[in-house]
Design a protein around this nucleic acid. Sequence first.
DNA 1: TCTGGGGTCCTAGGACCC
DNA 2: TCTGGGGTCCTAGGACCC
Length: 447
Amino acid sequence: MADPDRPMGCSPGRSPQRLIAHLDMDAFYASVELLRRPELRGLPVVVGGRRAAGQATPEGDWPRLRDYTGRGVITTATYEARAMGVHSGMGLMKAAALAPNAILLPADFDEYRRLSRRFKAAVAELAPVIEDRGIDEIYIDLSEVPGARDAVGFDPLGGARALAQELKNNVRRATGLSCSVGLAPNKLLAKICSDLDKPDGLTVVMAEDVPSRIWPLPVRRINGVGPKAAARLEALGVHTVGELATWPQADLVAEFGAAHGHWLHEAAQGHDERPVVTESEPVSISRETTFERDLHPRSDRPELGRIFTWLCERVAEDLQRKGYAGRTIGIKLRFDDFRTVTRDHTVEQPTQDGAAIREAAGQCLKRVNLSRRLRLLGARVGSLVRLGRDGLPLAAPRAPQAPARPPTLASSERVVSPTGSVATAARRAAVMDEQTLPLFPEAEDAA
DNA sequence: TCTGGGGTCCTAGGACCC
DNA sequence: TCTGGGGTCCTAGGACCC
């Protein structure tokens, strides 16, 4: 497939050498907290938990990890806390055993988003081709940035490195925060090498450096090789990227299937042609919550019903605020044994209406065996379309398959608005009639 | 005392159409 | 009457990422 963005003058069939940066903010959430609490610098600090206090007592005591009880995981840990074995994703109770005196702060996502916008704007001043990879990291295509292009191929330690250093300086000026940058011919290598010298690192890896710099690393460092794939490779005697690189592609395909096998083979060679994608549309919007204690579908029915309705309304609110509607309404349940099930249901017209979402989600819930306690409940809307000011989809959703039912509704039926449209009221009433035994009937009252 | 919340992408089977 | 292949949509689960 030809790359439409290929610069003029490059021979067809062979991609031009690109210069890609991956920029990763160092311990982002924790670093943001230290910006406004400089007295905590140098101490082990973790961000996480739902009920952490977030401020010192009048006596100047900060909440400690050992005082926390309940569910939750570490979102970020400062490097001082990481030195004690604590890392993100770790359960708070387990972390408390390792670092009881670490200071625990609650997450403040509004503030993180504010600084996220700032650091991205600071990068955009110098290099505008940016791919968003979440709140704390981005890819940057530097290929066309003046001064960088000339550096490709013959002076990676000169112009390109100087430009990356400028990016870091700009980010620090704008936010007071440090970041680590990886510089490479593609996203795969840039991502790996931004992690090689954290924090405040700047690492350059060119194609010819792959054997010496990349092959000694564990396969897990490849973005896309997770715990499962790593374990399977381990079982095959493959621990490092270099060992993976010795495998013939055919053997990897036989072992992992065509798509995954081919990708693993390319990744081990340091090959990656994915472009830096500057714009994308969301595929789904969801809300979920883990309960403080597991709830029983029967004895805790009223509470579950309220939570279920609340989640659907939050999703509807998110859709309305962002200007989307969706046709596929889904639910997610996690049982006390951590087993997760999902159900979804596609409706005829995209909706962003909380009541309509709640109804479809209720239909989904009927198809789940509810004999165990639940620890998590979630609601999701997918197959999104962006809505214009008139409340109609900007790009019409794909027409549903030829209906196997009488065409009772006009094809021009409006999208269900937040207030609910006349056209859908009859259908909604029909759905209600089918609900001989609503699973969480109390929710209807609470709503 | 296990294991958050927000996402994306892939696979695979069945329905349905041409 | 039987056999069939390709394409798309829908659904469920799972791997993975930040």
